[in-house]
């Protein structure tokens, strides 16, 4: 893949990929969020309209992140998307999506709120962005905005990290706006690594205000704005054996599993370990470096 070097100009045209979390368990649960789904959609539609009004060439694509599937629900560049029927076509597709999502659900699937398939919608958004990059030299500047509320699904960790690194390579910032009560470690890392904005609004009643002041500006204008500073992201790892967060640990040289104590063999890949190499690397280093210095 050729790395993409976006040239930011003053009349920066944006491609905004919006990932909407439609997890029904999150939206219906008491005390997880202080805003109703219908209110939330009203804010989002107003926000999308204002982004499209900012520049005639701006493009907005909406992807719904469900708990069993993900799908495109709106593309402002697609034929047949008339400006005055924007909200209707979006809502109609969204209803179809939610119904499909429900049909795919298995009976015994989730206890509690469950996670939505953020890795899937991120991957789809990145594929779409690559298509825009291929379209020619004057493509719009893409960015991804995750409107997310569900808790993180640990099983998606590898996939989400893969998507984050791919976004970083193609210089696509991932912005995140958290709608739930809890922070998301995945999205914190995503925004930190890709240089996006991470925001957890205090008052969801004013969601439109947050969206329009923080997330509506194009990438060039961001240089001049005082946007929320990146929060301190904890990059410490947790060990595979006890799930404790650790400062120092042992890494399997074959599969990179993390352990807090020395083990005889790796529980992930089954390799049998030799002697613990606690000091060998440092001594060999000193040996190596002495002739040079």
């Amino acid at each position: 893949m050729t790395p993409v070097q976006p040239k930011l100009s003053t009349d920066d045209v944006s491609l905004l990929m919006v990932l909407i979390d439609t997890n029904p368990f999150f939206w219906s649960a008491e005390n997880t969020t202080s805003i109703l789904f219908s209110k939330f959609l009203a804010h989002v539609v107003a926000f999308l309209n204002s982004v499209l009004l900012l520049n005639q060439l701006n493009q907005v694509v909406v992807i719904a992140t469900g708990i069993n599937t993900c799908d495109y629900v709106y593309d402002s560049a697609a034929a047949g998307a008339l400006p005055n029927q924007r909200a209707e076509s979006l809502l109609q597709k969204l209803v179809e999506f939610v119904v499909k999502d429900e049909q795919l659900a298995k009976e015994d699937s989730v206890d509690g709120i469950g996670s939505s398939l953020l890795s899937g919608s991120l991957s789809m958004a990145l594929c779409y962005i690559q298509r825009v990059f291929r379209s020619g030299p004057h493509h719009p500047q893409p960015r991804i905005l995750c409107l997310h509320g569900s808790p993180d699904g640990p099983e998606q960790y590898v996939a989400i990290m893969n998507a984050i690194f791919s976004a970083q390579r193609s210089m696509v910032p991932i912005d995140s706006c958290l709608l739930g009560a809890q922070h998301s470690a995945f999205l914190q890392q995503a925004s930190y690594i890709t240089g996006g904005v991470y925001l957890k609004p205090q008052q969801l009643d004013g969601l439109f205000q947050y969206l329009s002041t923080v997330f509506a500006s194009d990438l060039y204008s961001r240089n001049f704005l005082q946007l929320p500073k990146p929060v301190g992201v904890d990059f410490r790892a947790s060990c595979f054996c006890h799930k404790n967060t650790i400062d120092m640990g042992y890494i399997c040289s074959v599969c990179l599993s993390i352990f807090c104590k020395h083990h005889k063999n790796c529980s992930t890949c089954g390799s049998v370990f030799g002697q613990a190499q606690t000091n060998a690397p440092s001594t060999s280093n000193q040996k190596r470096k002495t002739p040079e210095t």
Binding site: G249, I251, C252, V272, G274, A276, Q277
Partner: peptide
């Protein structure tokens, strides 16, 4: 040879 390597995870 497969081995366990001691590594540190420093905080910013």
């Amino acid at each position: 040879i497969a081995n366990l390597i001691r590594m540190g995870f420093p905080q910013r």
